[in-house]
């Protein structure tokens, strides 16, 4: 098992090399000149040139690439021009914020979507089936920034139930000592319930926004997979053997329907991590999405490259985790066979 995981990780290296090359070229192909941007509108031609030399942008592309790879191999992901901080530090402090938000949204979506999909599949044509279809349609057709703004408008501005949508924690509370970087967990680790409740309150609206968006594919996939499995021959065998309806539904049908649901889950998860930029913007969430978009606007190469590389690494681990989970559910898919 361990050897297989290692083999899989080694197999991901060519992908990572590809990602490094492509992001390097893509950032260079972007319009805009970082040197001119940082010299500002008042910057003279000499000043721009000076910055360019300082950044090494006057060198040829292959030279720049070699320097970039050399730095990477030393664990140096470069510095952000905008903040002056090392990109690695910026990303590692921001990644937990994004992960916490994404995971909460995902868990929320799973908790709602899977029961909904199962109910819809066991009662096709019923009101719950129509509800499932309605939620699915609404979920995919409403863009996240719109639902985010709508939720903030209703629950913060009109009703005043939610705290102001500004970041991960109320400014009067101090963030818990960093262990995992997840405020919900870190606050519990030090037993600070106030901070836990505060962080949860800030988290609810953006997490619901994300959940609404991924609810749709999850509920639809659960429903479709369950419908397919429920009409399978082995379900008839189980029913003919007189097994309890709950055993048939969960032990027999749902476990078999889990594979496509897990595939969808992996897809929406990786999709969310990168694309919750808009939600992070709406709720002033200090995550990597908003960080990357700011860097992109400023033609700030190092953070963009760092962001893409981080995402690539996450994808590799995510796919590995999903493959291992497949094997746990389906013996035909055990990866060490």
């Amino acid at each position: 098992m361990l050897a297989t995981i290692l083999k899989r990780l080694l197999g991901a290296i060519p992908n990572l090399i590809g990602v490094i090359v492509v992001t390097f070229l893509l950032t260079r192909a972007l319009p805009g000149d970082p040197a001119a941007f940082f010299a500002g509108p008042a910057g003279t031609a000499e000043a721009v040139e000076e910055i360019r030399v300082k950044l090494g942008l006057n060198k040829s592309l292959p030279e720049q690439f070699l320097l970039y790879v050399r730095d990477l191999s030393r664990g140096d992901w470069g510095n952000s021009l905008a903040t002056g901080q090392s990109v690695l530090t910026e990303l590692t402090t921001r990644l937990p914020a994004s992960l916490e938000l994404t995971l909460c949204g995902l868990v929320l979506a799973v908790v709602i979507a899977i029961p909904l999909g199962i109910l819809a599949a066991t009662r096709p044509g019923s009101w719950i089936d129509h509800l499932c279809r309605g939620i699915a349609t609404a979920g995919v057709s409403l863009p996240t920034f719109f639902t985010g703004l709508l939720l903030a408008y209703i629950f913060y501005f009109l009703l005043g139930w939610a705290p102001s949508p500004l970041g991960r924690l109320d400014p009067y509370l101090s963030s818990p000592p960093t262990v995992t970087g997840f405020y919900l967990i870190d606050s519990l680790l030090v037993g600070d319930l106030d901070v836990f409740v505060g962080a949860a309150k800030q988290l609810i609206l953006p997490a619901v926004t994300l959940a609404l968006f991924v609810l749709a594919p999850l509920a639809r996939m659960t429903r479709a997979a369950m419908l397919g499995v429920l009409s399978a021959d082995f379900i008839r065998t189980a029913r003919a053997a007189g097994l309890a309806p709950t055993t048939v539904l969960f032990t027999y049908a749902f476990r078999n329907a889990l594979l496509p649901v897990m595939t969808t889950l992996g897809m929406v998860f990786s999709f969310l991590l990168g694309s919750n930029v808009l939600v992070e913007k709406v709720f002033a969430w200090p995550g990597i999405g908003s960080f990357a978009i700011e860097a992109l606007v400023a033609s700030d190469y190092a953070p963009v490259q760092g962001f893409v590389l981080t995402m690539a690494l996450l994808y590799v681990f995510l796919n590995l985790a999903i493959d291992i989970a497949y094997g746990l559910v389906d013996p035909r898919m055990r990866i060490d066979q």
Partner: peptide, 28 residues
């Protein structure tokens, strides 16, 4: 059903739960 009356089907390879050990299926 399953106790006094029982049934077996055609195409046995697809008529058993593909991801459950056969012994467990009997135990169920």
């Amino acid at each position: 059903r399953g106790r006094e009356l029982a049934m077996i089907f055609q195409n046995p390879r697809v008529a058993l739960n593909p991801i459950r050990q056969v012994g467990q299926q009997i135990e169920d």
